[in-house]
Computed example of a mutant assay.
Amino acid sequence: MSRILVTGSADGLGRAAADALLSAGHDVVAHARNAERAASLDPLVGRGADVVVGDFTERDAVRRIAAELNDGQPLDAVIHNAGVYSGPAVMPVNIIAPYLITALLRGPRRLVYLSSGSHFDGHPALDGVDWRGGSAGSYADSKLFVTTLAAAVARLRPEVLSNAVDPGWVPTRMGGPDAPDDLELGHRTQEWLASSDEPEALTTGGYWYHGERQEPHPAVHDEAFQDRLVRTLAEETGTAL
């Protein structure tokens, strides 16, 4: 069985993924942004889950979480689930935090990044992006960036299985009660990529939707854009991939 970190697992898709992985016998590290939300994870803790707490809008909190995890039992996989749809936290939570965790964590051989169909509306341009969240950033841009990061990690770290998943527009707190997609299908693919030994799950560099590998925005596999993104994130955070 694997030891898997699921970020943003206090509710929604992250909670569903953590719950299902626990039920399958895996060791799970859940994550919440503050103590109040962490308290909602008590049922998972009662079933054996560990919990890390920290606000992904704060880079020091991300660094502290990574250090705490590096000091603990080695992780086999990370599901980068945490995300926000709007407001100034979009870039810090949706791309800076996943980048920093990827750069700082030692050991995980499987990385799964939550993308979105909205990434097709993103712009592969890095000039003028407010990485620190002083103003509202584009959700579509953030999801294009994190999908590109997944592809870049697959290329730059060939020993790591790195993939992006579009979970669909599902009825969560973020998606809203009228979202038309299937909540159950919305979390199964990332669990499978994080834990399965099936041949397809042992591939890398993919963009997945409900168990099927699909073609992402053309910029995702543009190696020059990947390199610019990784270089920009390294300069912005002072942390090299």
Rank of each mutant, 00 (worst) to 15 (best):
M1C: 07
M1P: 14
S2C: 08
R3Q: 11
V6M: 10
V6H: 03
V6R: 00
G8D: 07
S9K: 00
S9G: 08
G14Q: 05
A18N: 01
A18L: 02
A20V: 04
A20E: 05
L21W: 02
S23E: 14
A24R: 14
A24L: 13
H26E: 06
V28Q: 00
A30V: 12
A32N: 04
A35S: 13
A39F: 05
A39R: 14
S40H: 12
P43R: 04
A49M: 08
V51L: 07
V51F: 03
V52T: 10
F56M: 10
E58C: 10
R59H: 13
D60F: 05
R63Y: 05
R63V: 09
A66V: 06
D71L: 04
Q73D: 15
Q73N: 15
Q73H: 14
L75K: 01
L75N: 09
D76I: 05
I79M: 05
H80I: 03
V84T: 13
Y85M: 14
S86G: 10
S86P: 06
S86R: 15
P88S: 09
A89T: 03
P92L: 09
V93F: 09
I95V: 15
A97F: 00
P98V: 05
A103E: 04
A103C: 11
G107R: 10
Y113L: 10
Y113H: 14
L114T: 12
L114R: 00
S115N: 08
G117P: 01
H119Y: 04
F120K: 03
D121S: 13
G122N: 04
G122F: 02
P124G: 07
V129F: 02
V129M: 11
A136K: 08
A136I: 02
S138G: 05
Y139Q: 08
Y139C: 07
A140N: 13
A140Q: 11
A140K: 07
D141I: 03
L144I: 04
T148V: 12
V153C: 06
V153S: 02
V160G: 03
V160N: 02
N163M: 12
N163S: 10
D166Y: 13
P167Y: 04
P167H: 09
P167I: 07
W169N: 12
R173I: 03
G175F: 12
P177W: 08
D181C: 04
T189N: 04
T189K: 06
S195Y: 02
S196E: 11
D197K: 09
E198F: 06
P199A: 07
Y207E: 09
Y209A: 07
G211H: 09
Q214H: 15
Q214L: 15
E215T: 15
E215I: 14
E215F: 13
A219R: 09
H221D: 14
H221V: 08
H221R: 11
A224V: 15
D227T: 13
R231N: 15
G238V: 08
T239M: 03
L241P: 00
